[in-house]
Design a binder for these strands. Structure first.
Length: 177
DNA sequence: CCCTGATTCGC
DNA sequence: GCGAATCAGG
């Protein structure tokens, strides 16, 4: 099917009325929603009422995936080597320190357990910002684990509600192809 | 998983 | 110009 004047008019009308691209495609027939969206863009009426989506995305770089050519050859375009501005996850220390329920134990000298004074039998729960000079460890007696009984409760929470196998699989597929 | 629009690029 | 593939997000 091609974009006749009549079909374009229907497209404009339905789009103006707020129908989604897939709905318009179904009504027109013979086109996919991608075709509708593509046409909408080409007509320059992409910006409809934006209810709740002020999403600004940086432009995607060219598809690096191999493409199967009609003659059977597979071409793998060299992907742009632009470093993606990936924001790293916060260090575990920061997250755990924020939820620390106990202040560092006071040592005999009045200070707190540091990396120098922390012994094997002492709780290794971090307290405060590692970059801070006052950064310390809990230092209470740790028995069968790295933490004291109080921090062990926080550190070894009962397993959080697991993701479904399905959604995990989706994630793996997303990153692994 | 379903859905939405946005974008790129081979055709 | 067209639209499939592929995005990012609800």
């Amino acid at each position: 099917m091609s974009w006749t004047d009549e079909r374009v008019n229907v497209l404009k009308k339905l789009w103006a009325e707020g129908h989604s691209a897939s709905q318009i495609a179904k009504q027109l027939g013979g086109v996919t929603r991608n075709a509708v969206i593509g046409k909408v863009h080409r007509l320059g009426l992409s910006g409809r009422a934006t209810p709740s989506r002020p999403v600004k995305r940086p432009p995607r770089l060219a598809r690096p995936k191999p493409r199967l050519m009609p003659d059977g050859t597979v071409t793998t375009p060299t992907p742009a080597v632009t470093a993606p501005p990936v924001e790293e996850a916060k260090p575990a220390v920061e997250r755990t320190a924020m939820t620390a329920p106990l202040p560092p134990m006071r040592l005999a000298d009045g200070g707190a357990a540091t990396i120098l004074t922390l012994r094997d039998s002492m709780c290794k729960w971090p307290i405060g910002d590692p970059a801070d000079p006052k950064f310390a460890f809990c230092g209470r007696k740790s028995d069968c684990g790295p933490y004291c009984t109080e921090h062990a409760k926080v550190a070894f929470q009962p397993a959080r509600k697991r993701d479904t196998k399905k959604s995990q699989y989706d994630y793996v597929r997303r990153i692994a192809g």
